[in-house]
Nucleic acid binder design. Structure first.
Length: 428
RNA sequence: UCCCCGAUAGCUCAACGGCAGAGCGGCUGGCUGUUAACCAGUAGGUUCGAGGUUCGAAUCCUCGUCGGGGAGCCA
């Protein structure tokens, strides 16, 4: 058995391909069957003269998504160079498919989402999720080669990490527990044991978000590195994003073509990325008519204004302390701001990275926990990290689906998750 | 939680106060190179639910249900 992705190596040979019927067209004595096997899509040509009457009728009667195999000779498509097709000699069904709901014409989002388990078979969903897989591999390859160790964080936690967003509460054998919104605090403990670490897994936000940029459950990679300062933290971020985009352009040419993605913007994604301070970003927004004042956080329209000024991802650094999490380190040169940065992707995708140097001074951290009204006793273990050999360190979080959505050019982040969890939508 | 928009054939939509329609999908037939193929025929309806206005409601009004987009929150 040969896969569709390998057909180019078998031109002139007879091969067997197993898969599902994506689409078919017939023309009297010819039937064109587009088969998909998970690795790609391929046209099979069944000519009446080459098949028994039973076999030819079988080919013509196949319905959408019937599973079957063909045996035939691999040929280059006479009209399209580099595209291969199969001259069918034998064809056999595995299983029928009656009234497949997703026909080759337009469908509404609600209908497609309620058929997500079948929608995954569509070409664009296939392409998007293959890009997602490539991105995850790029992230692991990059971090592993940079000496980071994969140390995963728990999904179930006794309290909120940041105390800001709403969390899902669980009954943990009679006591409350929460689904984690971030592995960050655990990463800091791991960084003190392993130096450079990252966790990669799902996180959960119980916010009733209803936008094209938000998921209730999403995957995040969170690198954390000991003795890395703010400046170097940003360099790691931009090199990681550069690598992800470069790998996708190199290895996902077919997928990007299926998605009709204009890759010009992606070609520009090379380091160094532009950097501006929060204060500069506020000025830009004000010049464009935004009502934002220094000290407030950016709204989605403000992010759009800033990102529209640049041809690649832009990093905004040094936000006011009051709009950021308690664990971010105060800027020694300006105590009003913290040593953090957000990376805003182009094309209105929004924030794909949030990162910072962490507060390593025990007294300042204690004060911040009090100021944020966080339960001190829940953070005892975290404060231990400052008691027993405190160390300068930094880290960041990159949203896998946001990155996928951007590179694939998705209209909505839900397409970047195989089975997205959305507000009032967790089936299938 | 707030603000907009929507619900009509399996799907995508039209009809906007006067006979319920089209394309796609299904089915039947035709065609040796099709690319969401094409051509002909055919089946398919409690117009989301409840109430109201009207000679007459898919259409106007009220309430409800479900869905979509956006804000806030953030990856």
């Amino acid at each position: 058995m040969v896969t569709i992705s390998e057909l180019g190596k078998h031109v002139g040979e007879d091969v067997k391909i197993s898969g599902w019927l994506h689409n078919s067209r017939s023309s009297g004595k010819l039937v064109f069957l587009v088969i998909r096997d998970g690795t790609g899509f391929c046209q099979c040509v069944a000519f009446q003269g080459n098949l028994s009457p039973e076999q030819f009728k079988l080919a013509g009667d196949l319905t959408q998504e019937t599973s079957f195999f063909v045996v035939g000779t691999v040929k280059e498509n006479p009209k399209q160079k580099g595209i291969f097709e199969i001259d069918v000699k034998q064809i056999e069904k595995y299983g029928d498919s009656v009234d497949f709901p997703i026909s080759p014409k337009e469908h509404g989002v609600g209908f497609l989402m309620s058929n997500r388990h079948l929608w995954l078979r569509s070409q664009k969903q296939w392409a998007t999720l293959r890009i997602r897989a490539r991105i995850v591999k790029s992230i692991r390859d990059f971090l592993d080669s940079e000496g980071f160790i994969n140390v995963d964080a728990p999904c179930i936690t006794p309290s909120s990490c940041e105390g800001t967003t709403t969390l899902f509460e669980l009954d943990y054998f009679g006591k409350p527990a929460f689904l984690s919104q971030s592995g960050q605090l655990y990463n800091e403990a791991a960084a003190a044991a392993f130096g450079k670490v990252y966790c990669l897994g799902p996180v959960f936000r119980a916010e009733k978000s209803k936008t094209r940029r938000h998921l209730i459950e999403f995957w995040q990679v969170e690198p954390e590195a000991a003795f890395v300062l703010h400046e170097e933290n940003m360099k790691i971020q931009e090199r990681l994003v550069e690598r992800i985009v470069k790998d996708a352009l190199h290895d996902c040419e077919t997928e990007l073509k299926v998605l009709e993605r204009d890759t010009t913007v992606l070609q520009h994604v090379v380091t160094p990325f532009p950097r501006i301070t929060y204060t500069e970003a506020v000025k830009i927004c004000q010049q464009e008519g935004s009502s934002i004042e220094w000290g407030g956080d950016f709204g989605a329209p403000d992010e759009s204004i800033v990102s529209s000024k640049f041809d690649r991802p832009v990093m905004i650094e040094k936000y006011p302390a009051q709009v950021k999490a308690f664990y971010m380190k105060q800027d020694p040169e300006d105590p009003r701001v913290v040593l953090c940065d957000d990376m805003i992707a182009p094309e209105d995708v929004g924030e794909i990275i949030g990162g910072s140097q962490r507060e390593d001074n025990l007294d300042i951290l204690l004060k911040k926990i009090t100021d944020h009204n966080l339960p001190r006793e829940m953070f005892d273990w975290y404060l231990d990290l400052r008691k027993y050999g405190t160390f300068p360190h930094s880290g960041f979080g990159l949203g896998i689906e946001r990155a996928t959505s951007w590179i694939a050019g998705s209209q909505h982040i839900r397409e970047a998750s195989p089975f997205p969890r959305l507000l009032d939508h967790n089936y299938p």
